[in-house]
Design a protein around this nucleic acid. Structure first.
Ligand SMILES: [Mn+2]
Ligand SMILES: [Mn+2]
Ligand SMILES: [Zn+2]
Ligand SMILES: [Zn+2]
Lengths: 138, 138
DNA sequence: TATTAAACGCAACAGTGTTGCAGTAAAAAT
DNA sequence: ATTTTTACTGCAACACTGTTGCGTTTAATA
């Protein structure tokens, strides 16, 4: 992804395009799966932890990224596929954790089966799966 | 639930039936829905926090309770419906968070629909729902 | 009742979330 | 291009949580 594209993406969401932010967004974007927080920390050792904390929060708030976690695992960060906003995070996808490579994937699902529960009015669904991913089956 | 029953339940799982443990189990069992950690803290102020931490861990490890959380919410604790063991936690139920009363319920589901994902081999499913619960619909 | 194995309370340390504040850099206005 | 405005950054600081070690106490059992 082009840097100028990320810059305008940030600006569109009312965030200043600082070097750290550009780098962070690129890193998460290019990772190939959701990024464990510890990886981000390692990659951005120089950045003050409070800044990292605020930056991740800002990006999640503004709809550029979202958090994902499965079970008791560490929280992961992934870029939002399409333009989410502060008020609307579109997540028509599930989170899949591979038992083998341990990566966590955001997997799109078309027409996610609605779940019926006797007596309950279901409004939102969140699904986490685990198993073996495409790459690890081969 | 009878205290002597809880005592033998604990003993069956190789845990000593101390007063704190009996009280804790009763509290979570009788709560009516999964218990937020902060509620447990408030209820057991006198208990050392390390003991509480170890006790909850032990009960979860041994299959007497399990953790549940929805979204970024605080972790909740709920008793296991049937006899889980250290190696096998049976969770044929989903977690439902009511937007109204904010309680988190463990809701049993018979024949939980298997989810198919192209290319992925799905082994475990974890589902969290939100909406309005039975009691709050009226 | 005596023995043994487990649980408890306390101290201590690392990690994280969170806020305030003063200096700095990006964006908008001139 | 320079100024002005706005927001981001780094640092200090605090509370809370997870986690471990250790000596004392208590429940289980012989
Ligand atoms: Mn995702
Ligand atoms: Mn449950
Ligand atoms: Zn894999
Ligand atoms: Zn409700």
């Amino acid at each position: 992804m082009d840097t100028s594209q990320v810059k305008s993406l940030l600006n569109q969401h009312k965030l200043k395009a600082t070097p750290s932010r550009l780098a962070l967004y690129h890193y998460v974007h290019d990772f190939g799966s959701a990024v464990p927080y510890s990886n981000i920390q390692d990659e951005f050792k120089d950045l003050d932890r409070v800044t990292l904390y605020r930056t991740l929060n800002a990006m999640c708030d503004k709809g550029l990224m979202h958090r994902a976690s499965v079970g008791d695992d560490e929280v992961h960060y992934a870029v939002c596929a399409h333009s989410c906003t502060t008020t609307e995070h579109h997540h028509d996808h599930v989170h899949f954790k591979c038992d083998d490579c341990e990566r966590l994937y955001c997997v799109p699902t078309k027409g996610l089966s609605t779940i019926e529960l006797d007596g309950y009015e279901v409004r939102e669904i969140q699904i986490q799966l685990s198993g073996v991913c495409k790459g690890c089956r081969g």
